[in-house]
Design a protein around this nucleic acid. Sequence first.
DNA 1: TAGATTGTTAATCGATTAACAATC
DNA 2: TAGATTGTTAATCGATTAACAATC
Lengths: 216, 216
Amino acid sequence: MEEKEISQAVIGRLPRYFRYLGELKDEGVERISSQDLSELMHVTASQIRQDFNNFGGFGQQGYGYNVSFLYDEIGKILGLDQTHSFIIVGAGNLGQALGNYMNFERRGFLFKGIFDQNPALVGKPVRGIPVRPMEELEQFVKDNGIEIAVLTIPKAAAVSVAEKLVPAGIQAIWNFAHVDLNVPAGVQVENVHLSDSLMKLSYNISRYRQENSEDK
Amino acid sequence: MEEKEISQAVIGRLPRYFRYLGELKDEGVERISSQDLSELMHVTASQIRQDFNNFGGFGQQGYGYNVSFLYDEIGKILGLDQTHSFIIVGAGNLGQALGNYMNFERRGFLFKGIFDQNPALVGKPVRGIPVRPMEELEQFVKDNGIEIAVLTIPKAAAVSVAEKLVPAGIQAIWNFAHVDLNVPAGVQVENVHLSDSLMKLSYNISRYRQENSEDK
DNA sequence: TAGATTGTTAATCGATTAACAATC
DNA sequence: TAGATTGTTAATCGATTAACAATC
C-alpha cells in the first residue's frame, strides 16, 4: 500500500509543466516529445521523463506524450479536478487583492469569505462578499467546511489565528504572514514570504555587481 | 579571484536566518550556538555551520555566534545595508497592494513609482505617488536609475514590458506575472507565481487525503 | 519493419549530515 | 586549564543526468 513518497522537488515542478502543457494545448499541439518539451522549458529531457514516471507511464514509445491527456493527468495529480473552498483572513491591501484575483476560480479555488478584526472594514464588500468580523471565523469554517485559509495578517496575529483554525477543521493554510506556523501533521502549510523573495533578489543584484567589478 | 559560487539553496535559507536572528536580537539575546539555533529553527546544526561558513567564519569556538554581529553580516550579504529603488508596473489590485505595503521600506526598498496602461488609473495616488502612464516607463527608469521593476501585469504584457525594461537599464525584475521571462544574464529575475504555490498546496491536500484513506 | 522515443537502470553530481580536530 | 563549540573534512544521502534496452 505504501506508495513511494514523491519529493517536493518534483511537486514544485508540476505547476510549471501544467502551465506549458496548457499553453501547448491552447495552441492546438497534439503531441510532444520529452526532447521538444525540454528545449521549450530549458530543463533536461531526462528530468521530464523521470518526473512524469513518478506517477506512471503517461507517454508512448516512439510517439511521445499526448499533450491534452498529460495536461489533464497533471491537473488531477495537483488536485485541480476538484474544487477547494477558501477564506481570506485579513482584509488589508493584500487580502483584498487576493480576494479580487479572479484566476484562482478558474482552477477550482472558490472564494467563500473574508475576515478582519477591524470594525471599520467589517461589512465592506470584497468581490461581492462582505468582510466578516473575526469572531465569526471558527464557526464559519466549521459550518461551511472550508478547506483553505489564506492568512494575510501581521505575524503576531497569524500564530494565534492558525491555532484557532486547526480545531475548526481547516485542512490547509496559505501563509503570507512572515512567521513560521506550527500546525499538526495533516494540516498543510504553504508559505509565501514576499520579503524573503525580495531579499533573494537583492542578494543576486549585489552578487552580480561584485562579480563584475572584480573581473575588471 | 574566482569566488566559489554559493548555491541558491543556501541563499534561499539566508532570509530565514536573518528573520530568526532579528527576533533573537529584539529579545536581547546576545549569543547563540548552532545547536540552539538548530532547535529553534528545526534544521540541523551542521547545516547552519556549513551555511554560515560559505561566507567566512562568523562564530567563535567555545562561544557560538554573536547574534547582533551575525544579523548584520547576513544583512550585508543580502545587500540590505544598501537601498534599492523599485517601481511597480501594473496598478491593479496586487500592484496597489504591494505599493501600499510599508515593510519593504524598512529593508531599504524604496517605492519610486507605479505605472499602468489604463487611463482610468493614471493619476490615482498609491501611497502618495500618482500612477503614471506606461508611455513614461522607460524614460522614468533611465532618469531615476531604477534598479528593480515589480511586474504585476497579465502575462501577455509581462514579456513585452520586460523587453522594454532591459535596455532602459533595469537590474532586476520581481515577476508576479505567470510567465517565464527571458532576459539577458545580468538582469536578475525572481518569480512569485502565486497560482503555482496554490497548486502545490492543493497537491498536498489531496495527497494527505489519499494516504489517510488508504491506511484504513 | 525501421525509426523514434519512452521507461528505467546506472552513473554522476551536489547537497546534507556526521564526525572530529582546531581553538577560543 | 577544561569545556564548549566552531570550522572543516569525510560520509551519506538524494536528486539530476546519462545511457540504453524495451516497445510502440
